[in-house]
Amino acid sequence: MSLFDWFANRRKSNSQVTEPQEREIADGLWTKCPSCGVLTYTKDLQSNQMVCLDCGHHLRIYADERVQQLIDPGSWLPLDENLAPTDPLGFRDRKAYHDRIRETQDKTGLIDAVQTGLGKLDGLPIGLGVMDFRFMGGSMGSVVGEKLTRMIERSTRERLPVVIVCASGGARMQEGMLSLMQMAKISAALERHRATHLLYMPVLTHPTTGGVTASFAMLGDVILAEPKATIGFAGRRVVEQTLREKLPDDFQTSEYLLNHGFVDAIVPRTQLKKTLAQLIRLHQPYAPTPLTTHAHGVYGGSTTSSVNGFTHVLEQTEHLPDGLPLRLSAEES
């Protein structure tokens, strides 16, 4: 074998090993950032939660990685893992839907496009749903709708805040109108969650479009987005083609939505867990640092209504640090 042949063979065998992959994440030792092209040692990239160390580009991550990033180790309780899609319409485009389901399941090891469960985020119990773009573009069919609805209902019963990480092209066309109705079903569950004064925060990641945008993605009490994610109702190409309108460069990005008042904050992935925890804690009932061994006597309790309670408060103020008992001192005078 000549040296030339050796190179040729090597190139051939290499190209067979690394067959073309749609996904941005390489399983190899090194990963190329799709935005700036810089090669990074994959382990370094992973320890930075798949955010490019060079340009800050957020590479696509899978649902299980997201769960790992957000949920404290050992606290994850997955829900409804066995819920699987069927083919209720007998849908066939260029390929039969049930074949498409099976192939995608084999390829990804997922059953459908969302993972749901209960877990602790920085010690705070939450209900979490994470969509996975790998599974038919994160599209929402009956399974996505049912799993999210069940998770929200359970969170309402257990009085937990809900976080849903969105990544979806929208409703799954292969399940027709059943998919569209999932938008209403999930919104209904969110209405009940909301009616009991519980916190819901969607996190919009690249991409969040169509029926997902027109339902649970936009229904948050607080809406967070990852930097530079595409977020919109109609696809950019649809907007451009159907109406022949010239669009600004940042059209339908997280930044565009922030500027137009539709998301509360853009949070880099590396700060997401911290920010969510901060927000959840800000919504917990206010309880000043325990001061004495007394179980009650804090703001919002029954302290001010009765004479006994009042004296109780007076006793406590003696132990309070400076500046804190403003309201109490007013009552005193």
Partner: peptide
């Protein structure tokens, strides 16, 4: 609306 959807276990 809660009933809408077709899936299997």
């Amino acid at each position: 609306f809660r009933k809408m959807g077709v899936y299997t276990q």
